[in-house]
Design a protein around this nucleic acid. Structure first.
Lengths: 205, 205
DNA sequence: CCAAAAACCGGACTCGCGGTACAGTAAGCG
DNA sequence: CGCTTACTGTACCGCGAGTCCGGTTTTTGG
């Protein structure tokens, strides 16, 4: 059992590295099995097809990202009790974390899947959808916390506001890749922070 | 001369339709030539390879989008002289325009190219980069106009602010595709509008 | 009107990649 | 001891991108 899952993990590791560097379809199975030092048959023992690999990678990615967000906002909550400050500090930490990533940021696997629609089967798309919905729920809860203490100056839908976090992260990654500038995403996140500040901070006039 | 460019345009039309519906790699050349009612040789007469087709499509797409933005903000400028109002009205019009698009919004070709690195050659990536830089310049100019008349309440970099427009559009399209909800992009654009309102509107307190 | 260039047609062929099929084997475990 | 798990090795199929090249029609400039 241990040996099997170890190999499977190694396949996923080398596949992920290659996919983030070159794209999904540019990463051939032959190449993966060479890097993972197994045979093609070995690959198809663990994954029925290439789709299943993508599915497993997305599922794993969701878990990692969730854990990352949990940790991030837990650290923010350790610093302050105020829900608005938790959000603002959390976003600051997130921006710093992305900025400090060595080399080019990989770019979200979710987005790569979105833009290869027909390449992936419904399973993959569904996993994707669940991931996005999960993030919406997470940020929606935080916004509800803020709304309990602060008025919204320019009233908008809280769900849309929750989605804005994802929108800006995904959009930032697209922009960052298009311009080959890893600094864009963190700076765009800070603009989101600026927006939330203007929306909820008491006005000192 | 007329016949040649006519055929080329027909190839691009059917290719674009198919690509927006099914994705780039899911659209085979055989399929394109069948729809365009030519032969494979005919295709390769006009385009050296599939990459060149993508390149031509992106170039054309940039022009169309530029013309669209020109028209949009010209209409806004016809309604008001105030630079802030021009921006706010323009974004409103943009949101409505995207919302009124029949069926699923195609999703920006720029983003699809970004997430298929190796599939496209440097030419394509460069065209992409130029497109994004052009949009940044466009919105940067509008923001400079606003800054000439209004103070920025929470001071941020104007270039970042200009990029935010693209970030939110691209991110919105990713989200819209992930959740299969074409309403997301327009709603996210309205949040951008909300942000700019809070940033620049005089506070009545 | 005629020649040359441009815009194709037809079909055969190569190559890489995803995926299949199936026989065999080494290691662990009850 | 026998069964399962986790593979290896090899041969094979189909599809789509891209090549080659000879032939044909259509357009255009002198």
């Amino acid at each position: 059992m241990a040996r099997g899952s170890e190999t499977k993990r190694r396949i996923m590791d080398v596949a992920q590295e290659s996919i983030l560097a070159k794209g999904f379809d540019a990463t051939s199975i032959e190449e993966i099995v060479a890097s993972a030092e197994i045979t093609k048959s070995g690959f198809f023992y663990h994954f029925p097809d290439k789709n299943a690999l993508a599915h497993a990678l997305i599922e794993r990615h969701i878990e990692v990202e969730d854990a990352l967000f949990d940790d991030l906002f837990d650290r923010a909550r350790a610093l302050t009790d105020d829900p608005l400050q938790v959000m603002l500090v959390g976003l600051k930490l997130l921006a710093e974390l992305i900025a400090d990533m060595p080399g080019r940021h990989p770019g979200c696997i979710v987005a790569t899947a979105v833009y290869q629609d027909r390449l992936f089967n419904p399973d993959v798309r569904d996993a994707n959808r669940r991931a996005v919905m999960g993030w919406r729920a997470r940020f929606r809860a935080m916004i509800d916390d803020i709304l309990a203490s602060y008025p919204m100056h320019d009233v908008v839908d809280p769900d849309d506001l929750a989605d804005l976090v994802n929108t800006i992260i995904e959009g930032g990654l697209v922009m960052g890749r298009a311009l080959d500038d890893p600094g864009i995403t963190p700076r765009q996140i800070l603009l989101l922070r600026s927006y939330l500040k203007l929306q909820f901070s008491p006005r000192v006039s």
